[in-house]
């Protein structure tokens, strides 16, 4: 085939983040990745902070004192939100990726329904559970702790 000049139209990260007329599951896909990366960042910070104990009690208490500010409280809550979402959505993905809750192949009849419709009740239930967890976590963190 003759060589021809063409323009690379790959959209990179915009493929994750680009909104528009997309389905709900695509946002869950993006959020799952963002929360996963967020928790990885938290995990690294967590190891860094807890390792301060080897430098003595003073170093440990200095770091712990830093985290008592309201800003870090909110950050801690966001980590919990990320955990609740990532865990519950992860259960949905594990079930789906093992072929559960996507239904069997069927003759497509217009207007088409897909496996997305089949898994949606599971998605709704798990997202409600995640929301309840987040509410309980927020109540515990902001109302009971003070």
């Amino acid at each position: 085939m003759a060589e021809h000049k063409s323009y690379s139209n790959k959209i990179g990260l915009w493929g994750w983040l680009g909104g528009g007329r997309w389905g709900f599951e695509r946002y869950l896909y993006t959020l799952h990745r963002i929360t996963g990366l967020g928790m990885l960042l938290y995990f690294c910070l967590h190891i860094f902070v807890t390792s301060s104990r080897v430098f003595g009690l003073d170093a440990w208490e200095k770091w712990m004192g830093t985290f008592e500010s309201p800003l870090f409280m909110v950050g801690e809550f966001l980590v919990f939100v990320a955990f609740a979402f990532h865990a519950l959505n992860g259960i949905r993905l594990i079930l789906i990726e093992l072929g559960f809750s996507v239904g069997k192949a069927e003759e497509p009849v217009y207007p088409y329904k897909s496996s997305l419709n089949v898994q949606r009740p599971l998605m709704v239930v798990l997202m409600i559970v995640a929301a309840v967890l987040v509410a309980a976590g927020g109540y515990d963190l902001f109302a009971l702790s003070h």
Binding site: W22, G23, E25, R26, L28, Y29, T30, H32, R33, L93, I96, E97, P108, V109, Y110, Y112, S114, S115, L116
Partner: peptide, 14 residues
């Protein structure tokens, strides 16, 4: 694949 589901949403043949 992590089930964004867009392929099924846009497929013109179901």
């Amino acid at each position: 694949c992590h089930y964004a589901g867009e392929c099924s949403n846009v497929c013109p043949k179901g």
